[in-house]
């Protein structure tokens, strides 16, 4: 199905957030028997342009600046709010999503709605477009801040931890034959490494290598495990499975050599480039495999200042890579 409109974070939030999360609860209300003449002071002092009229906890109407001006203009004698207020009040329930409120604002052109508790029918708040905007901004701010904190905490971990050697290990379990979820582990690994504040080019190399390895696990095996070890200067990644194993590792390392079935090729993989891609991303690569037992792939990617391995070390890297056969 084709979606015509893009879904933005804000759009997500207007469906997720409820009216009660953004409405103003400190209500300024008047009673029906309040004289109209008193409105002037209230509007002036509170700098508002309308307010609910309540009897006890229940809404009986709404009186606005417009009603007040009309009353002045008509030069009537003192009257009670009761007789000038609008009785047919459009309300929102407090548990409605913001998107309902927004469409109601658009449809009616009103500046505010009173908010009613669905069960008790009591007046609980007032909502304006401004409240919606402020509520959304606050929520975005909070979520942004949370991601920032994740990033900050993670990227300082090496400085904060006091040890002679620090090593972070991330393990991911890959399901075999699960094409739907394929790539999920690499996606999570990539996000994690990004949060650690590692150099983006390095993160990209690890992610690509891990993704190709993950595809191999999904396509050829019943599942396996990706273990990434991050330490200052180096990231190593081990990918292990328990079969079926590669019959001829040397051959498997040749670009274009593939034993993948057609359905894998239809999905854009299986062209015999996976291991080569992994090799290209790695500073070192070792692969051992035993038929019926499984395959063990290990790669290292140098990071930061210790590496000196940006761009021009490709030749050196492939030189260092080698295939080993066990049998």
């Amino acid at each position: 199905m084709v979606q015509d409109k893009p879904i933005t974070k804000v759009q997500e939030l207007v469906y997720e957030m409820k009216v009660k999360q953004v409405m103003a609860e400190n209500l300024i209300t008047v009673r029906p028997e309040t004289p109209m003449s008193q409105l002037r002071e209230i509007f002036r002092q509170k700098r508002i342009s309308g307010m609910p009229v309540v009897e006890g906890d229940y809404l009986v109407g709404i009186v606005s600046l417009e009603d007040f001006i009309k009353w002045l203009y008509d030069r009537e004698e003192e009257s009670l709010i009761e007789s000038k207020m609008t009785r047919q009040v459009e309300c929102l329930y407090d548990d409605e999503p913001l998107v309902h409120a927004i469409s109601k604002f658009e449809r009616t052109g009103y500046g505010r709605f009173t908010v009613i508790d669905r069960r008790s029918g009591k007046l609980v708040g007032v909502i304006t477009k401004g409240d919606i905007i402020a509520g959304l901004l606050e929520k975005l701010e909070i979520e942004y801040h949370e991601e920032e904190i994740h990033r900050y905490r993670a990227s300082h971990i090496f400085e904060d931890i006091v040890a002679d050697r620090t090593r972070l290990v991330f393990e991911y379990d890959v399901l075999g034959q699960d094409f739907e979820g394929a790539g999920e582990c690499s996606s999570r690994l990539k996000r994690t490494l990004g949060r650690l504040g590692l150099d983006p080019a390095t993160v990209r190399r690890v992610a690509i290598a891990s993704y190709e390895a993950e595809m191999n696990l999904v396509v050829f095996t019943k599942g396996g495990r990706i273990v990434a070890r991050v330490e200052p200067g180096c990231i190593t990644m081990e990918v292990k499975d328990s079969g079926p194993g590669i019959a001829d590792v040397k051959k498997a390392l040749q670009p274009g050599y593939s034993t993948a079935p057609q359905w894998v090729r239809d999905l854009g993989f299986g062209a015999g480039m996976g291991l080569n891609n992994i090799q290209k991303c790695a500073d070192e690569m070792q692969i051992t495999s035993t038929l019926g037992k499984g395959t063990h792939l290990k790669i290292s990617i140098l990071t930061g200042d210790d590496s000196g391995a940006k761009g021009n070390s490709r030749a050196a890297r492939s030189h260092r890579s080698h295939g080993q056969e066990e049998s």
């Binding site: 094409f179 739907e180 394929a182 790539g183 690499s186 996606s187 983006p200 080019a201 990209r204 690509i208 993704y211 190709e212 595809m215 999905l267 854009g268 993989f269 062209a271 480039m273 996976g274 080569n276 891609n277 290209k280």
Partner: peptide, 26 residues
């Protein structure tokens, strides 16, 4: 061929492809 994209694609590229499965997005 997604492996080619992984091998030769660079950060900041637009990808043109006739494949439409989830692996393209991955």
């Amino acid at each position: 061929l997604m492996s080619d994209v992984l091998a030769y694609g660079k950060s900041g590229s637009v990808l043109l492809t006739g494949l439409t499965n989830q692996q393209v997005v991955r």
